[in-house]
């Protein structure tokens, strides 16, 4: 994945470039808003990471310029401003995701990868991971041909994990995508939800599909 990182904090940028590089991504770094916009307009990137408060030109302005130019590259906004309004402003400006500092590197990575493959499966299709089949139209889940009885929230949770099959989905991503909540619940609610789901889809089977990725989140199926 070719990533443009617009971040003025040199140390943060260094770690991010190094970390993303180790995860086999190619990263270009811009230290201010103007050079970031130039790079974004010239190059072709899979994903852009933009800090909100930047010298010369702020992150939201970069996104607006890009969108005005017809550039649809997904942008993840990084910000130290975490209020609800700030997130809404970021998304309204044309950002695709919003991450508040301090964030976990794994969270950033998971969200960037999710942005890259951001093509929601059309409704009515089936999601398939190994012998696990989720039918969006009939709202049924089968594993090895056997019908699994899931509650509505377990169904939504599984659908979310299956859309990102082979990739890490963080707890906050699940909270946002399944419940539309944007806060830290301060408790292990997601873990409990996952363990119940795991009981239903993995318990009676040899091959475990739902994995916990330490310090990051969950992953359904093996890395693709």
């Amino acid at each position: 994945m070719h990533i443009l990182m617009i971040e003025d904090d040199a140390r943060a940028a260094e770690y991010l470039v190094k970390g993303l590089g180790q995860c086999a991504h190619v990263v270009d770094h811009a230290a201010d808003g103007d050079s970031g916009l130039q790079l974004a307009l010239r190059g072709s990137y899979d994903v852009i990471v933009a800090d909100r408060l930047l010298p010369k030109r702020d992150g939201l302005s970069i996104i607006r310029m890009l969108r005005a130019d017809g550039n649809r590259t997904p942008v993840l906004v990084l910000s130290a401003l975490g209020e609800v309004d700030d997130r809404v402003a970021g998304l309204r400006a044309g950002g695709d995701d919003y991450l508040v500092k301090p964030y976990a590197f794994r969270e950033l990575l998971a969200r960037l990868e999710a942005l890259q493959r951001r093509q929601p499966a059309p409704m009515g299709e089936a999601l398939v991971v190994g012998d696990l089949v989720l039918d969006l139209q009939c709202q049924t889940v089968k594993r090895a041909g056997r019908l699994l009885r899931l509650q509505p929230r377990e169904f939504r949770l599984l659908a979310c994990l299956m859309r990102h099959a082979g990739h890490v989905v963080t707890r906050t991503m699940l909270l946002e995508q399944v419940w539309d909540f944007h806060f830290d619940p301060q408790t292990n609610v997601i873990d409990v939800q996952i363990s119940r789901l795991r009981n239903k889809i993995d318990k009676d089977f040899e091959l475990q599909l739902l994995h916990t990725v330490r310090g990051a989140g969950y992953q359904l199926g093996e890395a693709s």
């Binding site: 209020e83 609800v84 309004d85 809404v88 929230r153 909270l175 419940w179 539309d180 909540f181 619940p185 408790t187 292990n188 609610v189 409990v192 939800q193 363990s195 119940r196």
Partner: peptide
């Protein structure tokens, strides 16, 4: 008033109960 919107408390309570339900069951 900052970014406020009409919030359906009934639906909200349902969603929150949905999130915390398994915790209670456990």
């Amino acid at each position: 008033s900052n970014g406020w919107e009409p919030v359906n408390l009934d639906a909200l309570a349902h969603d929150v109960a949905d999130l915390y339900g398994p915790l209670a069951e456990e």
